[in-house]
């Protein structure tokens, strides 16, 4: 029905019961209904990737999913990255490599990279660049973004439990 529906979303570990119109995108559910405005909306047609979040651990475009489709799923957003306020290794690497300027695309790149690194433990820089081409940044020229992800991938690979 085009009337609003009740959906259940687990976002950053918190379970939410939300009433949404079917046409409300997941990006708008996160931003407007849950106040998680770290997920940004840059194009609403799936090209820029500013709204990238992890849905059931996989990177997705939150502008191309309706909230009702996500009913029952688990979503992770940029707000869920830092643990007890401390920035993650990836977030710190982004700052060190000046991988962000205006910061608008940054949450999308962080979630894209987290989703990628979870399944690709030891990527080479060429693969990282290819993966990073999923999202658009208009400020940095991407070098810092690629460098930060490569560095973290290497570090995590060395630190992995054997």
């Amino acid at each position: 029905m085009s009337e609003s529906r009740e959906i259940t979303l687990t976002v950053n570990g918190e379970r939410h019961l939300i009433v949404v119109e079917p046409r409300r995108t997941l990006a708008d559910v996160l931003r407007i209904d849950l106040g998680l405005t770290g997920t940004h909306v840059g194009c609403e047609h799936g090209i820029c990737g500013a709204c990238t979040v992890l849905m059931d651990d996989e990177p997705v475009r939150a502008c191309l999913i309706f909230g009702v489709q996500a009913d029952g799923s688990s979503v992770r957003t940029v707000e869920g990255l830092a643990v007890k306020g401390e920035l993650t290794d990836l977030q710190q690497a982004f700052s060190r490599h000046h991988a962000l300027q205006c910061g608008f695309c940054t949450p999308g790149f962080l979630m894209l990279a987290e989703g990628y690194l979870a399944t690709t433990p030891a990527p080479d820089p060429v693969a990282v660049r290819e993966m990073a081409s999923a999202n658009l940044c208009r400020c940095t020229g991407y070098q810092g973004i690629v460098d930060a992800i490569v560095e973290v991938a290497e570090h995590r690979f060395r630190q992995r439990p054997i």
Binding site: G49, T52, P59
Partner: peptide
């Protein structure tokens, strides 16, 4: 096909 976040969905 597109990029990873497209291919996951």
């Amino acid at each position: 096909i597109g990029h990873t976040p497209i291919r996951t969905r």
